[in-house]
Amino acid sequence: MTHRILVTGANGFVGKALLQLLEREHSSCEVFAFGHGGGQRDAIDVFDREAVDAAVLKVRPTALVHLAAIAAPSDARKAPRHAWNVNFTGTMNLAESVMHNAPEARFVYIGSSEAYGASFQGAADPVTESAPLQPMTVYGATKAAADLMIGQMAYDGLRAIRFRPFNHTGPGQSDAYVVPAFARQVAEIVFGKSEPIIRVGNLEAERDFLDVRDVVRAYASAAIADWDGKPDSVFNVASGHPRKIRHILDALITQSGIDIDVVADPARFRPNDIPVMCGDATNARDRLNWRPLVPFEQTIADVFGYWRRACSAG
């Protein structure tokens, strides 16, 4: 069987990592990369039902990995209606098109751990997939709603697999996210482009971090493996080990080899900030044979190296 994999959001950080993995380790697959805004990828607006139908009919995929989204929580908070249009209605358009035009295709939906929201509060252990979806942010709400919709459509025949990834990072990620934001600031200080001061929000929050290269292995496995999912096929992608944001910043400062002052800035504190977010990925380990392999220390070094090179190049 020749796998024909359609990837939405292919221009994004995770999309690029997935394409690199498929090219490197699954070269026999036919991969169709759809981004938004053209460039080197075919353009597709997931809110445009006709465009979505045309893409699915053109490719006739055996699997569709749906990564296209308003992915930064800060962007969703600033433009909630747009976030709902893309993250919920866009997902509905794709799922309906797959059901009608490629009913044998596997639909790999990439949700978010943000969908659990208030379920993290007071949780004594890493949350499992059975935890209630109680989102506390606009982004989390859009992803939770789409997650539930895809779960319902699975009972109508959609061959769906749902992922709920926890925080992930790696070289090339936008500095709209905490790890590359810190790495960029530290690199700018190293090259004398900024004074040796970093202004921060809440450093006491703890998050479950992964390397993007580990995360996309799970997505590729779901798209390619000879495995028939059921309507309850939902998987956390997590390390199970929360890391304090302060420790990540400390590691980056240590790698810089210079003294940097850290100053709290109240304007940088997020509303509805959850103290600890951590996931249990036993389900993915047992059913998909997935586990994280890249040491987080390597991830931090690679992210910092990326921003050092960026600053060096101007």
Rank of each mutant, 00 (worst) to 15 (best):
T282K: 12
S119T: 06
D48W: 13
F182C: 05
V186H: 00
H241K: 13
G151C: 02
C311A: 15
Y109I: 00
M153P: 05
R184T: 07
A267S: 13
G201T: 05
H26D: 05
D261W: 02
V263N: 10
K193L: 15
C278N: 00
T254M: 03
S97G: 10
S27C: 00
D208G: 09
H247C: 12
T137Y: 10
A301W: 08
G35T: 05
G122H: 15
G37T: 08
A251M: 14
L21H: 13
A251P: 06
V294T: 15
P295D: 09
R106P: 02
V178I: 15
I70Q: 11
T2V: 03
T8M: 04
V14A: 15
D226N: 08
F34P: 04
L203E: 02
A267C: 07
E204F: 12
P266Y: 12
V303Y: 07
R77V: 08
P295Y: 10
E129Y: 04
E50T: 12
S194I: 01
S174D: 11
S130E: 15
A51Q: 14
A83Y: 14
R270Q: 14
E30H: 07
V7D: 09
R164M: 09
V237L: 15
I253V: 13
A55E: 05
V178S: 03
S119H: 01
A76D: 04
Q173F: 01
R184N: 03
G117S: 09
M92V: 11
A71S: 11
A76W: 09
D232W: 08
R308C: 09
I189Y: 02
G170W: 03
N87Q: 08
T254N: 05
R213P: 02
P292F: 07
G305C: 11
S97K: 06
G157K: 06
R291D: 08
K143C: 02
G140T: 03
V215I: 13
T2I: 00
H82E: 11
R199W: 03
T137I: 08
V215Y: 10
E30G: 06
A220G: 05
A76K: 09
G111T: 01
L67A: 01
L158T: 01
A124Y: 01
A141H: 10
K16E: 07
Q152K: 14
D273S: 10
I260P: 09
A145M: 13
A123C: 06
N283H: 14
L19W: 04
V186Y: 01
I300D: 03
S239A: 10
A141R: 06
M1D: 09
I245F: 15
A144R: 00
